[in-house]
Simulated scan of single mutants.
Amino acid sequence: MVSTHLPKLVVLVTCFNRKDVTLEALRALPAAINNSFKSQLVLVDDGTDGTSEAVRNEHPEAILVKGSGSLFWNGGMRLAWQTALALSPDFFLWLNDDTTLRPSAIADLLKEYRHASNPRTIVVGRTIDPHTRAVSYGGLVRSRIVSRLNFRFLTEQETECHTMNGNCVLIPAIAAKEVGINSENYRHAFGDIDYGLRARRLGYGIIELKQPVAQQEPNQKFEASIGSLTLSNWRFITTNAKGIPWREWYRFCYEFGGPLWPLNFAVRYLKILRLR
């Protein structure tokens, strides 16, 4: 019998039309938690492929929220978090619906949090590419002195992050009060990095669990879609949530780029510009 003194965790997930992938990730949760939390799942289903019904069959205790169909990652996670606030947990977990966690991964995130000297600490799970063994998602640090918006993954020796990818992140409940939830200013790709930078600005520590929490390939399709700015795709790149939408990129650069933010804003597009 699970102890009633376990901390309460709410797992936040958003999904869009990949039912089998989502179910696989959710099936791994009990082993990943490994009796370290009392847990509750809040899932936003932004698609139409019957994911909600399938999740309800396997996880009848889950709180399911129907999306608008155009929430994308950050919008879906924001809605999940808004829903979860009333549950008053001790921790929240961001989890991508395509991140299938290894056994005890979430329990290990909690251990790492408890080892930290600062209760205002966010713990990031790193994932690795199963083919190359390179880091695919995880904590991020600034990689250049001049630019404040150029990030890289941590080395094996580093644990402290400036921000993070949002694939698997353990966040103490107090952060929802002090930092807030995902920003309404972003639809997709900037939301996780924005949150980490806002948390650091308020004195939160962000650390990375060095043992990978999952094997996961990087989204090469996404990288390819934003790797070239041409006459044929300029509208997608500069306006679509899965491109580099100029209003969101402008806001992000202005907020976090420091004195050189206009340069950051322009160079991102110039680097991928192809005159064809």
Rank of each mutant, 00 (worst) to 15 (best):
A175R: 05
L154D: 05
T51W: 05
D49Q: 09
N34M: 08
D194L: 00
Y186F: 07
A199K: 07
I145M: 15
E255I: 08
S183I: 02
I145K: 14
D46F: 10
L26V: 08
N74M: 10
A28D: 01
V135Q: 06
N74T: 12
G47I: 06
A173N: 03
T14Y: 15
Q40R: 02
N34G: 10
G50Q: 08
F222H: 15
T132V: 06
R200K: 13
G191Q: 00
V135D: 04
E223I: 13
A214V: 01
E61Q: 03
G47P: 00
F91S: 05
E112Y: 10
E53S: 13
A116L: 12
N150H: 15
A80E: 02
R18Q: 07
N17P: 11
V267C: 09
D129I: 10
S143Y: 15
V135H: 04
L12D: 00
T99Y: 01
R152P: 03
V42D: 00
L273M: 07
N35Q: 12
A31G: 08
V42P: 00
N182S: 15
T238E: 11
R133K: 13
Q211N: 08
S104D: 09
N17E: 14
T99D: 04
I63T: 12
R187F: 14
E112Q: 09
H115T: 10
L209E: 01
D108F: 04
E208K: 05
R247D: 12
L41Q: 01
M164Q: 12
R200P: 01
F92Y: 11
I106F: 00
R126H: 09
A107V: 13
P218I: 14
G75M: 08
V65G: 03
T127E: 03
G139S: 04
M164F: 10
A199C: 07
A105R: 01
S68Q: 09
S183C: 09
R198G: 04
V267H: 06
A28S: 05
E208D: 04
R18C: 10
C15R: 11
R187G: 10
F151Q: 06
G203H: 03
K221Y: 15
Y113H: 09
L87Y: 12
H188D: 12
G50A: 13
A54N: 11
A134S: 10
T100P: 04
S147C: 10
I226Q: 06
T132F: 06
T22A: 05
N182Y: 14
P30N: 07
T14M: 12
L140E: 05
S68C: 11
L197T: 01
K210I: 04
N150I: 13
E158Q: 10
P262S: 07
V169R: 02
S143A: 14
G243T: 09
A25M: 10
Q157C: 08
G139A: 05
E217K: 08
I207D: 02
E184A: 13
L229E: 01
A62S: 02
P7G: 14
P262K: 04
Y113A: 03
D90G: 08
S117G: 15
G139Y: 02
D129V: 07
C15L: 12
A241P: 15
L275Y: 15
L273G: 12
T48E: 13
T163K: 04
L231A: 14
P103N: 08
T4M: 15
T100F: 01
Y137K: 10
D20W: 14
T163Q: 07
P89T: 02
S52I: 00
N233E: 09
L270Q: 05
P7C: 13
